[in-house]
Design a protein around this nucleic acid. Sequence first.
DNA 1: TCAACTTATTTACGCGCGTAAAGTTTTTAT
DNA 2: ATAAAAACTTTACGCGCGTAAATAAGTTGA
Lengths: 342, 342
Amino acid sequence: MDDSKIRNMEQFARVSGISRPTVSKYFNDPSSVRPKTRARIEEALEQYDYRPNIFAVNQNRRLTKNIGIVVPYLADPFFAEIARNIEQRCMQAGFWPTLFSAHGDSALEVEILDSLRSLKPAGVLLAPLGRASDRAAVEKFCDDVPTVLFDSNIEGVGEAFVGSDNTQFVKLSVEYLCRTGQPPCFFEMPPVNPNANKRRNGYIQAMEANGFDPQVIRVAGEGWGFEEVGYRGGLDVIDRGLLTSDTVLCSNDRLAIGFLAACYERGMRVGRDADCALRVAGHDDHPFSRFGCPPLTTIAQDYEKISERSVEALFHLIEGGRSAGPRIETLFEGKLVMRASA
Amino acid sequence: MDDSKIRNMEQFARVSGISRPTVSKYFNDPSSVRPKTRARIEEALEQYDYRPNIFAVNQNRRLTKNIGIVVPYLADPFFAEIARNIEQRCMQAGFWPTLFSAHGDSALEVEILDSLRSLKPAGVLLAPLGRASDRAAVEKFCDDVPTVLFDSNIEGVGEAFVGSDNTQFVKLSVEYLCRTGQPPCFFEMPPVNPNANKRRNGYIQAMEANGFDPQVIRVAGEGWGFEEVGYRGGLDVIDRGLLTSDTVLCSNDRLAIGFLAACYERGMRVGRDADCALRVAGHDDHPFSRFGCPPLTTIAQDYEKISERSVEALFHLIEGGRSAGPRIETLFEGKLVMRASA
DNA sequence: TCAACTTATTTACGCGCGTAAAGTTTTTAT
DNA sequence: ATAAAAACTTTACGCGCGTAAATAAGTTGA
């Protein structure tokens, strides 16, 4: 290992006995050089462990190998998980993913998109804040940079969207709950994104389709501290006797976890058993839902498929040079996960 | 806004009426040019909105303005929160933070450090995996790049360490629990890092100091799915009657949340009330601990101070050119957060 | 074996900016 | 007002690599 001497591609080309342009070609695509040549380079690579200067590379390429991943709120393990998944897929494909979180702040989201621009990314995977997003800014960004939206849709923005079929989610949960007990009321907060709206509307549809009267309970609350909102709102509706059913379907699991905490505090036992006062269900199959008290019945998002499809869509976009035709929306169905809470 | 014309600093310098070297100087430090000059540049900046090419800048600077932030497991909201905190402080100071997660995998941790090296970062804030970390690799990295360790210490590695005084944490919790009921047994899993060891040892010390017999219950389990370990281990120790006290002090909150789920499943009511079978407490004041059933009594880490001090230490290191003297370890004390669980 | 390809080499330029040196202008201090 | 100091301009080079064009060498197939 005579390393620490090689300072640039010039020197590395010399010690490997190959010309610099060919070495450069190799690093852009190892399979683009003759096997014999490739072997010589890789041999030298083991001896000297040289790596091209990433800044020089990125400066000269018209398109970098960077991929931006933007999520609205990283302290939500759902996004952490899906980001991890996406990250790994990008790395495997030889890209350089960089993760950003808007931390629930739309100004920061815009800032991130601005920074991202100067990274000249080959593409971006963006889960927008949703309602709070600066639509114009996001739209303009998507015009400049190949972008796939995921999780939360913005109509017409980005080259593709990958997410869940929220209407189906709620249909599934409503039907299950109606089949097994009292028809549920729907517990929500002011919607942060279109998903929340689709869930509420889906609830209303599904209830009517089953011949029941929909009951939407909206509690006050802002931001991304959903558990807190669910907890406070839960206490409030319980204390004021606002629950119109003994079955509560929450818009999402985080809200449900907060609601469960409220139930616990008020001594209302939750579950399917005879001695239980309430049934509670949510949507998403959040990483922590399994450890709720009781474990939360929910509709599971397909993390794997969403991340897989998002990355696929982006790669397709990158290769296809953007002319990949019309905007495609891919929605995955959820699966019922029956646990003790409902 | 005649933007979209300016393609480099040369052109921007021309339209602003200032020479390029001076403009360059401005971007490196706006206060390094005469106020009048600065005003002219900033005036042009508003009209043309030009930004220096980040790759060209980083290529030519010996030290970039990049800062790497590495955490062991981003799906843990504790790390998500502290990363957010650190990120913002770095940005405010004009640096370019990039967040990485080892996702509990030591091979990935090493990979990250390797990638980080080629980013030529001005400094790195590293929360190591702990016991699983490749000590040699981390040590070598710290030799090359100014690094501040946080959360989990590796003796002698890095220029500084910032974390919590885990011994004090446990002393606090043990004393509280002893004062208010039965002395606790200690519920832990195989330690992933030195913090876990310090907590167990701290527990033993504190119990002995109070004249009680320490009882450590270690359950099997690996990886960073602590809730799962706590849940399974909890079921196991409950079913086998291994609990030596009606008060269970968990090594950390995530473990405790899993344990609470096990208690719930076994119908053991947790809390301080007369009808409760168990008291349970944890450490960290994890973001979700407030929403446990019951809400978890715990010792709160000082997120703010840890991130503040870590960043301070790193900046001091960056400015001081590394010769900042001996390795400093800063430990912050925790505060008792009394909730319903104990 | 020899032409027709394919792949590698040589040479050269450019990317956008940091930075040094020498000369010029402006500011500060006495 | 004047000398000294500070800030700016001009000129020029280098960073490490992508990439193009012309040329040379190697490979393939009939």
